[in-house]
Amino acid sequence: MATYIEHKANTRGHADHGWLNSYQSFSFAGYYNPERINFGALRVLNDDVVAGGKGFGLHPHDNMEIISIPLKGALEHKDNMGNTRVISQGEVQVMSTGTGVFHSEYNHNADQEAQFLQIWVFPKQLNIAPRYDQIILDRTRMQNTLLPFISPESADGGTYIQQDAWFSSGIFDNGKTTSYDVHSTGNGVYAFVISGSFTVDGHLLDARDALAIENPATVNIVATSDKAELLIIEVPMKPSSN
């Protein structure tokens, strides 16, 4: 039987550093909530706004799968793998940090904010060779349906991370319905509302609310506003790193 935990937007951690305004769905940096350490393999979901021209200087990561999804503006990325890239709204960046990566990430524009989701997922294998990828989402294919863009097989023009995880997103008109079938028994689903509102298995969620669902089989979704955008993250609930 499925179990549900609502994560309302106003219950998230919050840090305002002036140049960075960050809302944290799970314990991160100065925010600690023993009931919000992770959701299975999903470790971090930060909703960040970066001031014009500001950003994160060169810093290290290892043994984590990092996904960046710009929602507004653009970010400039540089790393010690030789990548210098700009990621904009409508694109997705993934990094497998494995044995170790140094990177920096700045707002590409000096005159406007950049907003993005920063998501960390535990890998299924430790100390792999680092990897970088970047894809463009076809937002026309996200209308009133969930478009998968991260999966173990890089299906349907998407990309992958080093975990048996699936990411999907869609943009829905008011009243439109869809469902999400879990790929593997025992996985969990984290439904995060980017904009608008939905009912997810009967739970009403507004913008930036989330619903953590353990042991689902099929998740039923109804948009309750126009231009409502939903992110679905399916992850193993008992990740193991070797």
Rank of each mutant, 00 (worst) to 15 (best):
D164V: 09
V222H: 03
V86I: 15
D206I: 04
M237W: 02
Y180N: 07
E65M: 00
N63W: 03
H17G: 01
Y4R: 12
N107E: 08
L42E: 10
F26A: 02
S169R: 15
I150T: 10
G202Q: 12
I221M: 01
A165V: 15
L45C: 00
V49G: 03
G52F: 07
N10I: 10
V94C: 01
K124Q: 10
R43W: 11
S197N: 13
I213L: 08
F172R: 07
E35Q: 12
A223S: 13
G40K: 08
A228W: 06
T3Y: 08
T224M: 12
N46E: 04
T145R: 12
D133Q: 05
L71S: 11
P123M: 10
V49K: 11
S225A: 14
Y160V: 05
L147G: 01
T159C: 07
H7C: 03
A191S: 14
F192V: 04
I128E: 00
A228M: 05
E91R: 10
S241Y: 04
D156F: 08
D226S: 08
I233A: 00
T199M: 04
T224H: 14
R141E: 15
G30K: 14
R139T: 15
Y132W: 02
L230R: 11
V189Q: 02
K72P: 02
L137H: 12
T99M: 00
Q89G: 06
A212Q: 13
Y23S: 05
H59C: 02
G53H: 07
I161Q: 01
Y106F: 15
G55T: 13
N46H: 03
Q163W: 06
D164P: 05
A51F: 05
A228E: 06
A114G: 14
N107R: 11
N144G: 02
G90T: 12
Y160T: 11
S154H: 06
K54M: 15
D111G: 11
I37E: 09
Y190V: 07
I5S: 05
T224A: 05
V94F: 01
D79Y: 00
N187I: 07
R43L: 14
R85M: 10
D181T: 13
G90D: 10
Q125I: 08
V121S: 00
M95H: 02
A191F: 04
D47W: 07
Q112N: 10
L231M: 04
T140R: 15
Q125A: 08
I213N: 03
G53Q: 11
T159R: 01
M64G: 01
N187T: 06
L147C: 04
G73C: 11
S96K: 03
R12Y: 09
A9D: 08
G30I: 13
M237L: 13
E214P: 00
I87Y: 07
F122Q: 12
E234Q: 06
K227D: 14
P70F: 09
L211Q: 08
D206H: 14
V101K: 00
L42W: 07
F116L: 15
G170S: 08
Q163C: 01
Y23P: 00
Y23H: 12
M95C: 02
V219C: 06
N174R: 09
P239A: 03
F26R: 11
V193G: 06
I67F: 00
N10M: 10
N10H: 14
F26N: 05
L205E: 07
K124H: 13
A217E: 15
L71C: 04
S154K: 13
A2V: 06
G57M: 10
G157F: 07
P236E: 03
G55R: 14
L75A: 01
N174P: 01
S168M: 14
S96T: 13
